[in-house]
């Protein structure tokens, strides 16, 4: 068999698959951000904290109430989404007429508070959350050992991403949403409750983060910093894909996961910066992002 730069193809396929798995998280998270930014014009810096909250809620459901992973997959995003609705109603809503910076500062502050409270309560090392028994074990694919759970992550995130894209781009509800962001006054003249729609959109974007958090809980340690580490990368993904572009964020999410995976093979020391290097290059060449439209 051929070798590529000293890496046997088996190892390469393995790394590509792993990149795809990490890309799944980037895709769901950046999708949520893109929806919130695209429809509300709010840069939601609390997204990482909301992702972490999803994982924590899953852990709490299991340990305090004995509710298993599968229910948590449904309930945790719902609970996190509801907190999002409350935050939107109470706080974010008041900032729509102001500069982007205010929304960013507010959500960043919220993120710090949520992280701080949980850190105080649970420490930093994280909490154990075991993989559900139906998905434990793995498949030997010949070129690598694929844990069943990771396969499930890719599948679940693909389904969620495509469904979201479909709802927003192809259905009547999505059409209302897009129209409401273009011209809210006109849309409300047609008898549609625009503020409520916006609130629910924020709740949905946040619920996506919560969903990713539940998916992540069995893989990464459930700790208060898990989102803070990830959110910066996810923002880079959104910028590369084009702020507010839904399809852009999904595609860039997965492909940057792949690129990062390859970096880990060829030069692991650079794996934490490669996405930012790409971001800098994209900003130089195409400031609106790969899929963004220049306004």
């Amino acid at each position: 068999m051929f070798e590529l730069l000293g890496i046997p193809p088996q190892a390469l396929f393995g790394q590509l698959l792993l990149g795809l798995i990490n890309g799944s998280f980037y895709a769901i998270l950046s999708l949520g951000l893109a929806i919130i930014f695209g429809l509300l014009n709010i840069i939601n810096f609390a997204h990482g904290a909301q992702y972490m909250l999803g994982a924590f809620v899953a852990w709490m459901l299991l340990n305090y109430l004995g509710i298993n992973y599968w229910w948590a997959l449904l309930l945790a995003p719902l609970i996190v989404g509801i907190t999002g609705v409350i935050i939107e109603r109470l706080l974010v809503q008041r900032l729509y007429h102001l500069d982007h910076l205010y929304g960013l500062l507010l959500t960043f502050g919220l993120a710090l508070i949520i992280q701080g409270v949980l850190r105080n309560q649970y420490g930093i090392s994280g909490l154990p959350y075991t993989i559900p028994s139906q998905l434990s074990g793995g498949q030997n694919l010949g070129f690598m050992f694929l844990p069943n759970y990771r396969g499930w992550v890719v599948l679940a995130s693909l389904v969620v991403c495509i469904a979201t894209w479909f709802v927003i781009e192809k259905t009547r509800l999505g059409a209302y949403l897009r129209a409401a962001t273009e011209n809210p006054t006109l849309v409300s003249a047609f008898g549609i409750n625009v503020p409520r729609m916006i609130t629910l959109t924020y709740g949905f974007g946040v619920a996506l983060a919560g969903f990713a958090g539940v998916l992540a809980a069995p893989i990464y340690s459930v700790n208060p910093n898990m989102g803070a580490d990830l959110i910066i990368v996810v923002f880079a993904v959104v910028v590369i894909g084009g702020m507010g572009s839904i399809l852009g964020s999904i595609i860039t999410g997965f492909s940057l996961g792949l690129i990062e995976g390859l970096t880990k093979v060829f030069y692991p020391e650079a794996s934490s910066v490669v996405i930012f290097v790409i971001m800098a290059i994209v900003l130089l060449i195409k400031p609106a992002g790969l899929f963004g439209r220049t306004a």
Binding site: A11, G14, Q15, L18, G19, I21, N22, M144, R150, I219, Y220, M226, D229, L230, G261, K264, V265, P268, S271, S272
Partner: peptide, 10 residues
């Protein structure tokens, strides 16, 4: 690093 899967595979 949050993710060690790549290194573990190596």
């Amino acid at each position: 690093s949050p993710d060690f899967s790549s290194y573990l595979l190596q």
